[in-house]
Write a protein that binds this DNA or RNA. Structure first.
Lengths: 197, 197
DNA sequence: TGAATTATGTGTTGATCATTACAGAAAGAG
DNA sequence: CTCTTTCTGTAATGATCAACACATAATTCA
């Protein structure tokens, strides 16, 4: 196989695109903005990523892998489901506020929250958010299975509740909430753990 | 004052614009879409509302008055702050899911959640969301003042917590959660009320 | 009636957008 | 070196967008 070698780093360019999409959303991040941020001219960009839509899908996949996974993996940390969820929320407190490296909020929570993003993107984002619910549900089911929580526990309600807290924290982070402010919300949420008194 | 009378109902047109902005957001609702939805040609629209941006500001103001206020007024319903917040969340359960008349979610929670909405709109929406926090804070402060809650209550944490629940419920409603599903989350949240056991 | 005023409808304007045509450059294969 | 292949840069393409110009119609006031 021959051909002139690519002159830019595909991973670094994808990272730059992800950051711009994260901050601006899909429509507001124009191909011009993206080219500037990625340090690539549009024909090279199209050759490497196919289309703006495909670029977004690659970016959100990159986001989930690099930023989402480490936070949601904390669910498995700790001996109990209670500790796991506390760890998840603690990780959210640390990562949701704007930092020197990352925009505020969770890219997957803030995206495709209005109609008429391209349908494939809306589908994918929705899937990511439903996966969050699935992760919580699975952790709670395991806790019921091993007797940590009573069999009467309303798993559906509890997982939707903690998902609400996480997603609401993402909105507040976007509005400028500090880690200390989010920490208060997270700790208040843990008081709702079943059987506590 | 003379002049040809307006042939369309300004309030009805504003209502239609609000519904479209609610569903699509600012950028995705084109002036063409808006004209169609409002039943008005663009020059009449500009004469009545100045610009797309001013139209959005009028629409969000209309939303807060017509849809937001009734829900947040429930905070004052009931003898205690606990009842007030339970009533607020119950109203959210009823109104957030998509209905025959309204799109899913809360227009103010779902809007301006990415950068580069026009700055005046971002400012206004942010103010609406901060007002939600202020309403919760005020209700909790009153509860502490009249001895309903201990003076040691962390009002800041508790109001941010319930705001998280509300905002997270709005996201889940947008993703298709049913009233029954949201009700579970709301009731789980009330378990976190201080001093309950 | 007629002058002043304000609405409506058609059609346009300049800007911005995502995408691509084309020509030149850089590599490997023979 | 020459051919093929793949990348890069310039500059265009057609589409869509918000906003408006202009002529016409409807109303009030004098």
């Amino acid at each position: 196989m021959a051909g002139r070698p690519r002159e830019f780093d595909r991973e670094a360019a994808l990272e730059a695109a992800m950051l711009l999409f994260w901050r601006k959303g899909f429509a507001a991040a124009s191909m011009n903005d993206l080219c500037d941020a990625m340090g690539v001219r549009s024909p090279s960009l199209y050759a490497a990523f196919e289309s703006k839509e495909a670029l977004y899908l690659a970016a959100i996949k990159h986001y989930v892998l690099i930023h989402g996974q480490p936070v949601w993996d904390r669910l498995a940390d700790g001996a109990t489901a209670r500790e796991g969820i506390a760890n998840l929320l603690a990780a959210a407190v640390e990562t949701l506020p704007k930092s020197r490296m990352t925009p505020a909020g969770c890219m997957a929570v803030l995206a495709a929250v209005s109609d008429e993003w391209p349908a494939p993107i809306a589908r994918e984002i929705r899937k990511v958010r439903l996966d969050m619910l699935g992760s919580l549900r699975a952790r709670l089911e395991a806790a019921v299975a091993n007797g940590e929580l009573p069999a009467t526990t309303d798993i559906e309600a509890l997982s939707r509740f903690y998902l609400s807290v996480f997603q609401g924290m993402a909105i507040q982070a976007k509005d400028g909430a500090t880690p200390a402010e989010l920490k208060g919300a997270a700790e208040a949420a843990m008081v709702a753990w079943p059987g506590d008194d």
